[in-house]
Design a protein around this nucleic acid. Sequence first.
DNA 1: ATGCATGAGGT
DNA 2: CCTCATGCATA
Length: 365
Amino acid sequence: MQRNNNPYVFLSSDDTSMMNGKQHISMHPPITAGPKYTPLHRTSEAMRRHCMTTPPSNIFAGLDESLLARAEALAAIDVVSGSGVKHSPQLLRPDTGYPGMNGTAHSPATSVAGPGPHVSHPLPHHPHSFADSEASPFDQIPTTSLPLSMSMTDPNSPVVSSVSSMAPTHLPGMHPAPTGNMTGMSPHHLVPNPHHPMSMHDPNDTDPRELEAFAEHFKQRRIKLGVTQADVGQALGKLKLPGVGSLSQSTICRFESLTLSHNNMVALKPVLEAWLGEAEQQARAKQRSPDIFNNAEKKRKRTSIAAPEKRSLEAYFAVQPRPSSEKIAAIAEKLDLKKNVVRVWFCNQRQKQKRMKFSAQQGGR
DNA sequence: ATGCATGAGGT
DNA sequence: CCTCATGCATA
């Protein structure tokens, strides 16, 4: 795979176990869904915007042609240089780390944790570091006391079982997929959980190093247990934690590789911690008693942006990460891509830059 | 493991 | 139209 393409991530490659043979989770109520995520307030967006977008004055002023042309030219150079991966040093990541913003900008935080707390209030933003970040609500659920019930080894689950909690019943196996419901679905209707007694720590209080350590530990334990990332995601739905449904293999993978936003990591940690505890317990039980029972529409098409176009987009992005609608239209036309594709590409690119590993925190605070 | 996409919630 | 959390599809 091309992991080379992503400058921000270098994930491990030692896991072999991730291969999942099965990845079919079906729907999930986004756990975040609790009451949808409780977004805290995402207040600082504007601020962030200003900070970052105000570069040297008018570079963009005359953007249009010249800039685009320039960006393309740079992109072309890039090509020449050979490695497909690259980005010209100067081009990409204006500042690498985005000191300015970082992590998380604000947030919603969480959703995940359901029990919790959703939010509470908008914490003031912190002066520094995570610039704007958000406040998030809860922090850790006492994992020890969580009532969970999970079953990782599902003997025969033919298909996914879907999350029961609130999932709109779907059928296993097939997704109806029709009008758009499947992926995004919106099951959100969890109960709005008022306040919670818990202490919510601010995500800003969670040390990235701690998250990293947990993620690593989690991965190791998971592998030892012989559980795939997809299994974990599915098992989460069975843990009936309030507000927590299944998660996809992707998300578990991203958690392990720290490629989620700081807030997202903080939100997911307690949940995965809960699962791990349950899983370990089950494993021990099994050891004791050698068990008896064996354990027993239309598909979405992914658009693929060709390398040359991708290079151009990267070049544009380096110059202006947040192009206006008109600009996006112009770029789309030039590259012969759909406008929406270009728009989404920029959104995703921005998200990438905010991801953890390397970008977010300054090490550790 | 990652690219492109969706959708809720916000501005 | 953005940000975020997530996911399907895919290399």
